[in-house]
């Protein structure tokens, strides 16, 4: 694609700008900022990726992966309204790291994916991105369930349950919340919309069947990574809400 054509494609933004102006939506500024940011961010990452692909350096790959995980953890830990950010960040960082190492590790060990940056980095991006969303959903649901089940949880503790036993229903709900978007999207994939990666492969010239094979692989890998991230976050993050003596801690969510 020539740079000129890309510039001409800015006219699509002009359509959105026109609608915003005409209908007085006051979105013009956001639209412009968004467009400029998309251009800059994507070109920067494009050049960085090009550099790493050319260098084929392991350090480079690990650096990019570490950066992805850090940014994703930072983002997901914003869902922490009761747990101090630093504690949430620690658990989520662990969860995303665990999800990436397990799934990417398996892909590499089983030689499903070649040890090449142009495979490892985009697939990791999808693994980490989806794990990030799952981790955030799990954490926020865990907090809201603990808040709404407070009476029941105290009752369970009073009957002699441990914190883990008392929180088990909240943990289950949180896990379901973290995992179900991926499972739901598995059910409708291909019917409602073609996933971005598959679209990209087809546009870049791959046969649809080849694109489908990769897409299936990705869906399965993402299912595993969201499950790992959710369970790690849920089983880690409930702990600071209880004391070692199975009491509600000072962080325990209030309604």
């Amino acid at each position: 694609m020539s740079p000129l054509i890309l510039l001409i494609s800015l006219s699509f933004v002009a359509i959105a700008l026109f609608i915003s102006y005409k209908e007085q939506l006051a979105l013009e500024k956001d639209l412009l900022v968004g467009t400029i940011r998309a251009f800059i961010q994507l070109f920067v990452i494009g050049y960085v990726l090009q550099l790493i692909f050319d260098l084929r350096s392991l350090t480079g790959i690990l650096f990019i992966l570490a950066l992805m995980i850090l940014v994703a953890s930072q983002n997901a830990s914003q869902k922490s309204s009761f747990l101090p950010r630093s504690i949430a960040l620690t658990y989520i960082l662990g969860a995303l790291l665990f999800a990436e190492i397990t799934t990417m590790g398996l892909l590499l060990i089983l030689q499903i994916v070649p040890v090449e940056p142009q495979y490892i980095i985009p697939i990791s991006g999808m693994i980490i991105g989806n794990a990030m969303i799952a981790a955030g959903l799990t954490l926020s649901r865990l907090q809201s369930e603990l808040a709404s089940q407070k009476g029941l949880i105290l009752t369970a503790l009073a009957l002699g349950a441990t914190g883990r036993q008392a929180a088990s229903s909240a943990i289950k709900q949180a896990l379901r919340a973290g995992m179900s978007p991926t499972i739901d999207s598995m059910k409708t994939v291909g019917l409602v919309q073609l996933p971005g990666m598959m679209t990209g492969l087809i546009i870049a010239g791959a046969s649809p069947i080849e694109a489908v094979k990769y897409q299936i692989l990705i869906i399965l890998v993402i299912t595993a990574s969201t499950a790992i991230a959710s369970i790690t976050v849920a089983l880690g993050c409930y702990k600071p809400f209880f004391t070692s003596q199975h009491q509600l801690s000072n962080y325990y969510p209030r309604q």
């Binding site: 009476g151 105290l154 009752t155 369970a156 009073a158 009957l159 002699g160 349950a161 003596q245 199975h246």
Partner: peptide, 20 residues
């Protein structure tokens, strides 16, 4: 052990909370 203590010294709340 705190769980054993709670089994022997039972607390019953003002409002009954039933498990689903």
């Amino acid at each position: 052990a705190v769980t054993e203590l709670r089994r022997q010294v039972a607390y019953i709340s003002q409002r009954p909370y039933l498990f689903p």
